Amino acid sequence: MALILVTGASTGLGLATAQDLSDQGHDVVVHARTSNRVPSGDWRGAVAADLSDLDATRALALEVDAFGHFDAVVHNAGALHPPDAARVNTIAPYVLTMLMRPPRRLVYLSSSMHRGGTTDLRGLTDCTASYSDSKLWVTAFALSLADRWPDTAVHAVDPGWVPTRMGGPSASHDLEQGHLTQVRLATQDAAGPRTGGYWHHLTTQRPAPAAADPAFQEALLAALAEVTRVPVREHP
């Protein structure tokens, strides 16, 4: 069985992902923003950290590495509004990825709204980025990492607009369908590319052109390294 970390697992898609993985017999470490939000369950471990705080995110990377070398990490935690959208949706996944030992599989939560994001990275440095911006950037980060880390399967997933705390009660997509792709990609190869896929409900789609643009990816990585003071790990 695999050792898997799921961030933002207190409710919604993160909790559904963690619970499904645990039910399959995997050793799951769940993350929540605060200790009182950690869900009950048969977990391998539970950690708490505010991913909008850079120092807390750095400390979390060291804390979770103590559980062992993860087989997979699902970067599910998200925030809807600035300034936390950039911090939680883009900066925290970058910091955790670069500071933790590289797992065999990495899954990053994107959104169809990434198609409305901008390539103007000033919103990353001052954390004024919109949700769409942050999801374009984390998608571009995932695709760039797939090229740089050939031994790790790296994917971005659009779970759809689902009725979670973030999505709201009027969301029109199926919550059950919203987490199945993450579970599959964290544990086995899906019917598609081994790495570098942009997924929606177990099928691949074309992401926004900017997400796959090597020049934009390089600019994004440089900006992330500068903002976080965490260098890009080119090849683990």
Rank of each mutant, 00 (worst) to 15 (best):
T34R: 15
H31V: 04
T139F: 05
T34K: 13
Y108F: 15
G117T: 03
F141K: 00
R122D: 00
D126V: 09
D120H: 11
R104Y: 13
F141G: 00
A49C: 09
L21T: 07
A59C: 12
F67D: 03
S134G: 01
P39C: 07
F141H: 00
R58K: 14
A66Q: 14
R33M: 03
A66M: 09
C127M: 10
Y94L: 07
A85H: 03
V138R: 05
Q24F: 06
N36H: 14
R87E: 02
D126T: 10
H26M: 11
L136G: 00
V29A: 09
N89L: 04
R58G: 12
L80P: 07
F70A: 11
D120I: 10
F70L: 08
G68E: 02
A79M: 09
P102S: 10
L121F: 05
D27G: 12
D23I: 12
A129W: 07
A66N: 10
S110A: 15
V73P: 08
R33Y: 01
A72P: 13
A92N: 07
V47S: 03
A72M: 12
D65Q: 13
H31N: 01
P93A: 10
A56R: 10
L54Y: 13
Q24E: 13
M98G: 07
V64P: 04
V95N: 01
Y131K: 02
Y131T: 01
A49K: 09
V88P: 00
S111E: 10
P93Q: 08
L62P: 03
V47G: 04
R87N: 02
M98K: 04
G45D: 01
M100H: 11
R33H: 03
T125K: 11
L136P: 00
F141L: 15
H69A: 15
R122M: 00
S35H: 09
D120V: 09
D27V: 06
A77K: 07
T90I: 04
V74S: 12
R122C: 01
L145M: 13
P82G: 03
R105H: 12
L51Q: 05
S40Q: 14
L121T: 06
F70C: 11
D20K: 13
A85F: 07
R58L: 12
D65N: 15
N36S: 15
R105F: 13
S111A: 11
L96R: 05
P39E: 01
A59G: 13
H81M: 14
P83K: 05
T119R: 08
P39A: 10
A142L: 04
A56N: 08
R105N: 13
R105W: 11
G25I: 10
V74W: 02
G41Q: 05
I91T: 08
H31R: 10
T128Q: 01
T125L: 09
T139E: 11
G25P: 08
S144W: 06
V29H: 03
T119S: 12
P82V: 11
T128S: 13
G41F: 02
L62K: 13
R33I: 01
F70I: 10
